[in-house]
Amino acid sequence: MDVQDFNFVREMVRSRSAIVLEDEKNYLVESRLQPLARREGFVGIAELVTKLRSNGFSPLHGKVVEAMTTNETSFYRDVQPFEALRKVILPELIAKRTGTKQLCIWCAASSTGQEPYSLAMLLREHFTGLATWDVKILATDLSTQVLEKARAGCFNQIEISRGLPPPLLLKYFDRQGPTWQIKESIRQMIDFRPLNLIDSWPAMTTMDIVLIRNVLIYFDVQTRKTILGKIRKLMRPDGVLFLGSAESTVNLDDAFGRVEVERTSVYRLR
């Protein structure tokens, strides 16, 4: 891929999503844009970039940004955060909320839905008392394409093989030929909505738990600070924040303190 084309795509992706593509990510841009170029009827990436240069922001620009955002995910990814939720965080919060019987959870980069569905199954499986509560799981992602897939709740064999214990697969999914469909009772627990973390956010309810895992690493320092600051304002004083295992609030937002729970780090407001 031509250096100038790479720089153009890099700058566009950075300005739209704040995702920083280092020099050595040339191969990644190429591997993600080649299929998109073909799908959109261009001979190659060069022709696609020429088209991008000739217009202001268009749906095609949006598709390029979407193609560059990483969507790696799995059910119960990393295990420990879900153990922390099951054993400590949720029992504590539920005990504190018995007056209002309200619980709000936000998966801020839900990708194709495995994280919010894992949460919903965890609630259904281990916290049956919540059936009479007002529990909201908000799942947002930048990419409308992956949100559509998440909302459909339909997963192929490889996807359901990643992290999902067979008893939960049998209990909460229906097999439909080669794919597995999440049951409607789980699907309807989640509100899927598009949200670009670097744009202005719509009015949102106050959150008890926020999961924004393996997202901040893609942003520059200033953007990480801005996003964490906005999350802080959305969280209840006793709320809990989950980041990816390689991420931290240290040197970004001192209002958060790190706490070790079930061999994973969570962040609470000081």
Binding site: Q157, S161, P165, P166, P167, L169, L170, R175
Partner: peptide, 20 residues
């Protein structure tokens, strides 16, 4: 085998995990 009934049978027989 990916039939849910068969998978359930395997789990009940004492299988710890199932790889398709």
């Amino acid at each position: 085998e990916t039939e849910p009934m068969k998978m359930a049978r395997a789990l009940m027989a004492g299988v710890d995990e199932f790889v398709m």
